[in-house]
Design a protein around this nucleic acid. Structure first.
Lengths: 205, 205
DNA sequence: GTCTATAAAGTGATAGAC
DNA sequence: GTCTATCACTTTATAGAC
């Protein structure tokens, strides 16, 4: 393997570690397994990182930074707020079922962070970022579908993430896709009741 | 330690292992840590169990069997269905916050089961048992508050568990109790819309 | 039966050759 | 700088003394 900058090698190792974790879990992410996945000799690991703990801290931080809710990025809104919510949740469900290991890794890393002293704040941060992403989506949906939210948008985002977490967890456990779809139907219905049509004083062409 | 039957020793070790897991996580539940917690010499472990894996299998099975949703057992219903749901969810939240490690252990064991080939069905089973417990509660609540459910009770139970899982997960991450309470308010409101007053042809005194 | 003492394998981390 | 070879330690599991 050609020479790489220190920062590249760190990234390469973190990336390899994430693949190993997806395959075998956090417990299976030994330094040997990671360097094997990255195609490096064992010593390269401690050339890039002080310790395995340091790498795991960087990995969790990396995930928190980069785990955008990409599901929603290319998302188009529906004709009304109910179908916008429904389609977004459905897109989320599809993303989960397409790559179950990904969500399992997120869950495992979150738990890992909750267990390691000094990393608890990263668990909180990751969860808050999800919520912030949902806030943006809720505001865009409101603008798009001409509604106002009857609760603080931050509270609604909390409800939405409660749904997505619950749906994720349930599907990971029982793999019942029609069941998950029925929950999404309910979620869309009940969230739509929090939307009220907005009276326009003026509107732009 | 006095002589104990084989079955008692197994139970003692499983119980000690659960305490160790609550304290240090699954990764910290080494055979040494477990026998130390149980006050036994190391060799006793393999006298009772073939291997650590066998003990972990029994432990997960034990939890699945015995993890009753005790929260709801001594639960009293409210005057209407909305407050019955609300109070039940609130009682659940109190139980979680009183003993955060307990839910963290359940989460961790579920993840463990999902990772270990041959144990996946136990993860599913544990989740289904929660749902069955909720079905019973929903039916009791319906009888008590004189309503009928407008969806199959099994689907509603799925929604309820989605809520409790999501609320649990969120609270473990961000420890925001007022936030969790607001989600519970919403959950009670939206679940109550699934209840319709029942017309009685006749009633018993 | 019970437990000390140890084996065998795997871990994170490094020294030292190139 | 890079990597082989190895250290020091921990893990599960067992042999063998009592």
């Amino acid at each position: 393997m050609a020479r790489m900058s220190s920062v590249d090698r760190r990234l390469e190792l973190v990336s390899a570690a994430l693949r190993v974790i997806a395959e075998r879990g956090v417990a299976g992410a030994t330094t040997r397994a990671i360097v094997a996945e990255a195609g490096m000799p064992l010593a390269s690991f401690h050339y890039a990182f002080e310790s395995r703990d340091e790498m795991m801290r960087e990995l969790v931080g990396f995930v928190v930074e980069n785990e955008a809710v990409a599901v929603f990025e290319s998302f188009r809104f529906g004709a009304d707020i109910r179908s916008s919510i429904h389609d977004a949740l459905h897109a989320y469900l599809v993303a989960i079922t397409d790559d179950p290991n990904h969500e399992l890794v997120m869950l495992e890393l979150m738990q890992y962070a909750l267990r390691i002293p000094g990393l608890e704040h990263l668990a909180r941060e990751q969860w808050v970022r999800y919520r912030v992403a949902v806030v943006e989506l809720l505001e865009a949906a409101a603008a798009n579908n001409g509604i106002e939210w009857s609760l603080p948008v931050d509270d609604i985002a909390r409800i939405v993430v409660t749904f997505t977490d619950g749906i994720t967890f349930a599907w990971l456990a029982d793999r019942d896709l029609p069941g998950a779809s029925r929950v999404i139907d309910f979620a869309a219905d009940s969230l739509a009741t929090l939307a009220t049509p907005v009276r326009l004083k003026e509107h732009t062409a």
